[in-house]
Design a protein around this nucleic acid. Structure first.
Lengths: 203, 203
DNA sequence: GTCTATATTTCGATAGAC
DNA sequence: GTCTATCGAAATATAGAC
């Protein structure tokens, strides 16, 4: 799996004076991402994260104020990754063409950051609880933005169902790139998924 | 939301002599299903389930041996619902036609038992941990059965991607029937989803 | 920045009366 | 079948030394 996004530990091998702590912070996030994806947020203890890094529980609290803070930082990773793909979806109704263009980018992001997407899909309950506390400034979450577009009654029902189905196809890629399709490359899968999505939106 | 499956509390209003406990057992499962779906399995305490029913924590232990046992019972609900839809998927490779016929039934089941499907999607970590303990007799889980078919290398890669994408379309219905499409009926949504799936599998 | 040690809370589970 | 009362474990989080 190739990483295209910045801000992961692998990109920061050479360290500037203060990069040691930055590196540690990212290493904590990488370990947490693994564990949260496999065992769930609530099913993972800070002790496990610390053990995987070879430090103690208390060390984590130097880099993060709470366990929720770690989850929030991972949520921000996805939010930043989606910033590019998220065009200005203003108040005008979205067309099927615009939706297709958007999802083409989301497919790429998803294949490049598979674990991050998977973590979000498998910890929706914990993320929602987090969002209830951090209701500062109406974060305008990606997921909410998607929901808002799909709920727009100015778009014909049939088109909205097509748009939702296309989203489902994107996330089927999470299932795909897991184990059943380990032999095929991301580019191959991405091309096929985009083809199917295009047919659905135009058909 | 219309319930088509048996074994929910609503179906058992008139009680036979021993139906009181049966009814309570199902009422516990209904409450747990709501809470596990909204807050997650690990994010829900037995105290919350008991409170919603107007009983105490200890009462739950008369009907279930553990918290995991409650989750397992809910998992069985889905397994029974899927028994009908699950044709004999033996060792022969599955054709696109067979897959379409199977998913037509799954769409119906999903729309009729939306919360049960949603709970499974949102608690995969807890369910996997449960399955690791209960590895008795290789339960042949529905999810594993799906994965096995999609991993069958005798089926062309392109067809397998189509089959996986179709599964994604089915589960997009979970997103759909949530709030954005509350006005449209389940039959309407089911018909549209089936149409899209058919086009994807044949296209 | 990381450690040891501990405070505090909450949860799952059990015992025994009724 | 349901209750009160409680146990023991594990978790998050903090305090303070180094």
């Amino acid at each position: 799996m190739t990483q295209t996004a910045p801000a992961t530990a692998q990109d920061l091998d050479l360290e500037s004076p203060e990069a040691a702590s930055v590196n540690t912070r990212e290493r904590i996030l990488d370990a947490a991402l693994d564990l949260f994806t496999e065992q769930g947020f609530d099913g993972t203890s800070l002790r496990q994260i610390a053990e995987q890094l070879g430090v103690t529980k208390a060390a984590l609290y130097y880099h993060f104020t709470s366990k929720d803070d770690i989850l929030l930082a991972l949520h921000m990773r996805l939010h930043e990754a989606g910033r590019d793909a998220l065009v200005q979806m203003g108040d005008e109704p979205v067309t099927l063409e615009q939706w297709g263009t958007l999802l083409d980018q989301v497919v790429d992001q998803m294949l490049a950051q598979r674990k991050l997407f998977l973590m979000h899909e498998r910890n929706q309950a914990a993320l929602e609880k987090l969002h209830r506390k951090d209701h500062d400034a109406e974060h305008e979450d990606i997921q909410n933005q998607f929901r808002r577009v799909l709920a727009d009654e100015r778009v014909p029902l049939r088109d909205r169902v097509k748009m939702a189905a296309s989203v489902g196809i994107v996330f089927s890629g999470l299932l795909l790139s897991g184990e059943a399709f380990a032999d095929s490359s991301n580019e191959e899968l991405g091309t096929m998924l985009r083809d199917i999505i295009r047919d659905v939106l135009r058909g």
